[in-house]
Simulated scan of single mutants.
Amino acid sequence: MMATGRIPGLSLVVVDAQRSLYAGGFGTADLSTGAPATPSTAFLWFSMSKIVTATAVMTLVEDGRLELDAPAADYVDYLRAPAAAQPTVRQLLTHTAGWSNPLPLRWVHPAGQEPPAVEDLLRSVLSRPRAYRHTPGRKARYTNIGYLALGQVIEAVSGMPVTTYLQHAVLDPAGMTGTGFTYRPGVPAATGYVRASRAADPLLRRLLPPGVAGTRHGAYLGLRPFYVDGPAYGGLVGDVVDAGRFLRLHLGDGQVEGRRILSAETAWSMRVIEHPGKPFDHGIGWFRRPTKGAGQWIEHFGAGAGFWNIMRLYPDQGLGIAVMTNSTTTYDFEPLFALLTTASWS
């Protein structure tokens, strides 16, 4: 899979509700140093962060501080839509709010710079023509804007920065000690790579914010450490072992290692894929690509400049798999997942 997909480095975990069944690393985390990818290598999670945000939102719902079917503008006034129909919190979670999905190519900043204010970014995006492209509550259409908005809703309701609330409500109780919103000093991290010809370097350097494009290594342009501007939609940084712990939380119907984070009923409700759409069918946080294949699973991808990740939950089999890579492009992971889900893990 790595050879065909031209993947420099990869970390992989397989879990059930009780434990990690396998954790390993393959290939190279940094081509300049030759550092190997390991289970403890930190990767940018990108949009895999969304399911963590969705889990945090549901803790506020369970606490009675947030109503799923209330308009999002009840909590953050500038989320009010110009039309009569107002997007609800549930619709933000399920990508049915009707918002557009602008390409977030420049929604990143070098790790050494201060991030832009999320409110400013969100207000700017919502002020664009056709930001409200569709009627809320109809077909699901994947968009980062909804989770940018959910981050603001979390802050308004909790009284904390969204990064603090996600840490407090999900990461810490789940024991995800290697994952947060910054690179941790002394922790090995994967360098993100874009595979492109050398002739494409000037274009890539213009497309990416200043300071992000790094040095070239053969067929790959390396990226310097950077962060996503909107932590709630894509800002987590961490290792595949913690991705496995998060999968165990949902395999455990809301609890992991005796620590309950969600009720079983809430965890089950998040798995229901009931909103058909393109390119995914959606539930609360989780989605699934439309497929005619056998088996039932739910998943979330995390893709952007330098990294392409997937976490998938197989509730009927009691298994979860996460793969994190420092490759910008997708790869055919289905044969690998088929092998892992039919293996004997006893």
Rank of each mutant, 00 (worst) to 15 (best):
Q113F: 05
P116N: 08
V118S: 10
T182D: 15
V212Y: 02
R128A: 14
L207F: 06
R141Q: 06
L105N: 13
R216L: 14
A190N: 09
R198S: 14
Y132V: 00
P225D: 10
P104L: 05
D120L: 13
P202S: 08
R195L: 05
R141T: 01
K139G: 06
A219R: 15
L204D: 11
E155A: 12
P115F: 03
G151H: 03
R141D: 03
V118W: 04
T135G: 08
R184K: 10
Y132G: 04
V162H: 06
V118Q: 13
A190F: 04
P185Q: 14
T135M: 09
V108S: 11
A117D: 15
T191E: 12
S197H: 14
T182L: 12
R141F: 02
T182M: 09
V162P: 05
S158Y: 01
S158G: 02
D201M: 11
P185T: 13
L221I: 12
L171S: 07
A174N: 07
G175W: 11
R128P: 01
R206W: 11
P185E: 15
H217D: 14
T182G: 10
I145L: 09
Y147I: 00
Y165F: 14
V194Y: 06
Y165M: 07
V125H: 06
T135Q: 14
V187M: 07
V162R: 09
P173A: 08
L126P: 03
L126W: 05
V170Q: 02
A200Y: 11
S127E: 11
F181D: 04
V125A: 15
P115L: 04
V170D: 03
P104V: 07
L208K: 11
P202I: 02
G146K: 04
L204M: 13
R141C: 00
G137Y: 03
D172S: 08
R206E: 13
L105R: 11
A174P: 04
G137F: 03
L204Y: 12
L150Q: 00
M160T: 00
A199M: 13
T163H: 10
L171E: 02
R198M: 08
G211T: 07
W107M: 14
P129C: 10
L223P: 03
R106K: 15
G180Y: 02
G159F: 01
R195N: 06
A213I: 03
L171K: 05
P104S: 11
P110N: 10
M176Q: 04
E119G: 04
L148M: 13
P129D: 12
H217W: 10
S127T: 01
V187R: 12
A199F: 13
V125M: 12
L122P: 10
S124A: 15
L221P: 12
V194P: 06
S158H: 01
P210S: 11
A117I: 05
P188I: 09
G137T: 07
G218R: 13
V170H: 02
V194A: 10
Y220W: 13
P136L: 07
T143Q: 09
L121T: 14
R206Y: 06
E155T: 04
V187S: 08
